[in-house]
Computed example of a mutant assay.
Amino acid sequence: MRNTLLFTLAGLAGLTLASLTALGILPPQFGNQNLRVSSDVPVASINGEGVSKVEYLRALTAMQAGLDRSLTEADKKTALQVLIDEEVILQHALAIGLARSDPMARKNLVQALMRSTALLTDYETDTATLEAFFAENKHLFIAPRMVRVKALTTNDASIADAFKQAIRNGEAFEAAGQRLGLTGKDLPDDIPLGKAADYLGGTARDRLAKLQEGEIIGPIKSGSTANPQYMYIWLMKATRLDVQFGEVKDIVTAEWQRRQEEKAFESYLRDLRRSADIRLHDEVIETIEHSDYTTPPDYRN
């Protein structure tokens, strides 16, 4: 069982590139075309399509990595047979149109091509470039603001007004609340600002976002006219919003690389569009009505 799994895994890398090449959607630098240009030679041929020596060596390498002994001749033959079988299956799948008719196959091919374009992207960059990217996109790397708050509520408007005056007079938040009988909300010590709405409501969260540490807001009124509630919130602590480049350099680098991959694929896709004969059949598109894509298929004529 273990060897069977290793043999299967060993052939997957070759299968992806072979399938893309056979579909004709890979540029010359991908797949077997590049191997042939590099003077690589096939170790087998199936209906004229070669299984390259590089693919075979890749399969042997993967197999050897999973074994504590040297590969035998039988192992090598089995590895080659896996690649041959994959090519046979692939050719048949393409012949019956599976790449077009099966949604999962189409999706996997598109995703494989997107990953393949990333192989051509030059990831090397200098610190100055990364620092400039960080400065332009700093909001992406700031951790969620964490807040620690105390919240007191009352249903009595006169008590709410008395509490407000007590705070203005310099009385401590908790002492004034205890003296006037306000009810404290049970809150975690530290919560992400975005989650504050779950405990305090959206209005309170939005106002908290503008508060400085130590400030108090209120009364925030909620509820119905017959049963109103007045809430005061004290922002006791807030985590700092700023981060330095050195603290998140690895994250910045990963995001920069991801965007380079996106740009590489977008450029490649533009080239594909330019070389493709794309025609829109407006006479068909214009016949599509709303019910055509909202009515369940079983109920269509």
Rank of each mutant, 00 (worst) to 15 (best):
V88H: 08
I96T: 13
L98W: 02
V82W: 01
K107E: 13
N108M: 14
A99D: 10
N108G: 08
L94D: 02
A95V: 04
R115S: 12
I96W: 02
R100S: 13
Q111P: 00
L83E: 01
L98N: 05
N108F: 09
L109M: 14
L83F: 05
V82C: 05
M114G: 06
H92N: 14
A99E: 06
L83K: 00
R115G: 11
E87G: 03
V88C: 09
Q91V: 01
Q91M: 07
I84G: 04
R106C: 07
I84T: 12
L83Q: 00
A112Y: 00
L98S: 10
I96F: 08
M104S: 14
V82T: 13
R100F: 12
G97Q: 02
H92G: 13
A95D: 10
Q91C: 05
Q81P: 07
I89Y: 09
N108A: 13
Q91P: 01
V88Y: 07
L90N: 04
Q81F: 11
R100I: 09
R106I: 03
Q111K: 15
M104N: 09
R115A: 13
A105R: 05
Q81W: 08
S101R: 15
M114W: 01
A95M: 09
Q111T: 13
P103D: 03
D85L: 11
D85V: 06
G97E: 01
M114F: 05
I89F: 10
A112T: 01
G97I: 01
H92I: 08
H92A: 15
G97D: 01
Q111M: 12
V88K: 14
E87Q: 14
P103L: 04
S101P: 02
L83G: 02
L90D: 00
Q111C: 07
